Computed example of a mutant assay.
Amino acid sequence: MHWLQLLLAILFETAATSALKASDGFTRPGPSLLSAAGYACSFYLLAQALRVVPVGVAYAIWSGAGVVLISVVAAVLFRQRLDLPAMLGIGLIVAGVVVINLSSSASGH
């Protein structure tokens, strides 16, 4: 259940960040409210996952997956393109999350 909570926290954070971009500096009420609600849900679910998952592992996964997902969303919804150094950096983030999950005793596996 805690891994599902972490996954949902990541998805809410990604949606909230997308809405934050669409809020145009909190000048558009709809996206602004979606952003605030999404972050509230994300933090709640992250807090629930932290009852079981070590904070360093959970945060690494939450932030790393969030970076990757929001980069994809930004490319699709906002037509933002990443250059090669940015893509390499994101690849290193993904590699780090994979190493933590597969190899670290801190991950709880």
Rank of each mutant, 00 (worst) to 15 (best):
L84F: 11
G91R: 06
V67T: 13
Q80A: 12
W62Q: 11
A37M: 14
D24Q: 08
M87S: 10
P31I: 08
V53G: 05
K21N: 06
L7V: 15
T27E: 10
V99M: 14
H109K: 13
R81Q: 12
A65D: 03
V53S: 06
Q48W: 01
M1L: 13
A60G: 05
A106V: 03
T14Q: 00
Q5E: 15
Y59Q: 01
H109L: 03
A75N: 03
S42Y: 04
L92V: 01
I10C: 06
R28W: 08
A36Q: 02
A22Q: 12
R51F: 04
C41S: 14
G66C: 12
V52F: 00
L4H: 04
V67W: 01
V99H: 12
G56R: 00
G30L: 15
Q48F: 07
G108T: 04
Q48R: 14
S23K: 02
L45F: 14
M1K: 11
F12T: 09
V98C: 13
R28S: 13
D83W: 06
L34C: 15
P85W: 04
L6H: 02
S23E: 03
V99T: 14
F26R: 13
F26D: 12
S107G: 00
D24V: 01
A47G: 15
Y59P: 04
V55D: 09
I70K: 02
V73H: 01
L102D: 03
L46P: 11
I61C: 12
S103W: 13
K21H: 11
G91S: 08
R81V: 09
F43A: 07
G38Y: 02
I100A: 01
C41E: 10
V72M: 08
G56V: 01
C41P: 10
A60F: 00
L11Y: 09
A9W: 04
G66E: 09
T27Y: 07
L50Y: 00
A37I: 13
I90T: 14
P54Q: 14
W3P: 05
L84W: 10
L46S: 11
V53A: 09
L69Y: 02
A60W: 02
W3H: 11
L84D: 04
A15H: 02
Q80L: 09
A106T: 08
G30Q: 09
S105W: 03
P29S: 07
R81E: 05
A37R: 05
S32W: 01
A65W: 00
I93T: 00
I93Y: 01
M1G: 14
A19S: 11
C41I: 09
V68G: 05
G66H: 08
S107P: 05
